[in-house]
Every structure is written in structure tokens, then in C-alpha cells.
């Protein structure tokens, strides 16, 4: 990416930001070209922050995408709800803000780890996971898991193993929109 490129990451918390940071830099995005817009609201308010700021970020993306090489990455944990429910909710937020729905050619990726980003981290660290249990307190998170994220980035474009969490499979398609 050149010096005028930028990827904006709209996310809930530091764990998501760190995951995105390592994934993007290992996909070749320069660290200085990533700008985080992380919830500054405090615990428990991250999801609302992402939902509330999504339309504004899409509007800003559309105002700049013609002359800047810009992308928008949106991350929010699914928690107990489905990935599709979150994506639909974000689409509805665009409509409510009088913005058109996300176009197929727009570099806007919506990433919804289910149950949350810790599920993906635990999977990448070799743990058998499902999308129902909450792994937020798993000891695996104490490991230096960013190397696994780098490995995932290195295999970008190749099919994920069948046992990977469905939400991670869904994320691969979203990724191709952005990078």
C-alpha cells in the first residue's frame, strides 16, 4: 500500500484491535496505514459504539474512496446472536441514516467473530472450539497468540480447514472485499 492508503478499523476493544493489527500487517498493510477507531466508551458499550458509528464511517469512506486508497474494517462480537443478525442490523443502520446498502465493490468488510474474537484466537492456537461457549477467560489467551494470526494471514486465499468456526469462514469472504 502506498503512503496515501489507509485502513480504518472500527472495533469494540483492544483484543479485536490487536487481532486486526497483526492480521493486517502480515497481509502487507503498513502499520502506520491502519487507523483504529476503538470504542472509548468503557466496558459493555463497545457493540453499541460500533453500531452507532458504522453509518458515519461508511459515509466518510464513500466521501474519500474515489481519491484515496481506503478500506473500512468493522469488527463486532456476535455474542449469543447470529452473524447474519449483526450484519443485517448494520445494513439497517445504513438505511436508517439514509445511506444506500453496502455495495459489492465497496472495500468495507464486516467481521463478526462468534461467539467472540477469543473463539477465533483459541481456534488458531489449536483448541477445539464451538461458537456457543465463551472462551474469554481461557488460559490460551495468555499465550503469544499473534504468531497464529500471522500464520492465518500467510495462508490467505487458501481454503480454511472444515473445522474452523463458521464465523471465520464467513470472515474470509469479507476480507477479500477489503484487501
Amino acid at each position: 500500500m502506498d503512503r496515501y492508503s489507509q485502513i480504518i478499523v472500527l472495533c469494540e476493544d483492544s483484543q479485536q484491535a490487536r487481532f486486526a493489527y497483526h492480521f493486517l500487517i502480515h497481509c502487507g498493510v503498513h502499520a502506520r496505514r491502519i487507523r483504529f477507531n476503538k470504542s472509548p466508551l468503557g466496558k459493555g458499550a463497545g457493540e453499541q459504539f460500533v453500531r452507532d458509528h458504522y453509518p458515519e464511517q461508511v459515509r466518510l469512506y464513500r466521501s474519500k474512496c474515489h481519491h484515496l486508497n481506503i478500506g473500512l474494517v468493522v469488527i463486532l462480537d456476535a455474542d449469543a446472536r447470529s452473524v447474519e443478525a449483526h450484519q443485517n442490523e448494520l445494513e439497517a443502520a445504513l438505511t436508517a441514516a439514509s445511506l444506500r446498502r453496502r455495495g459489492a465493490d465497496e472495500r468495507i468488510g464486516i467481521f463478526v467473530p462468534k461467539r467472540n474474537i477469543e473463539t477465533w484466537i483459541c481456534y488458531l492456537e489449536g483448541m477445539a472450539v464451538n461458537e456457543i461457549d465463551d472462551y474469554s477467560n481461557s488460559a490460551i489467551l495468555e499465550r503469544e497468540w499473534t504468531r497464529s494470526v500471522a500464520r492465518l494471514a500467510a495462508t490467505r486465499g487458501q481454503p480454511l480447514p472444515a473445522e474452523a468456526p463458521p464465523s471465520l469462514h464467513a470472515a474470509c469472504a469479507e476480507l477479500e472485499r477489503v484487501l
Partner: peptide, 13 residues
Amino acid sequence: PINEGNLAGLPIA
């Protein structure tokens, strides 16, 4: 600590 969510919906700064 600053760890409670805030209802005002404003950034902490």
C-alpha cells in the same frame, strides 16, 4: 479505575 460503561454515550476524553 475507569471500567464502568457510561450511559452518556460520550468518549471518555
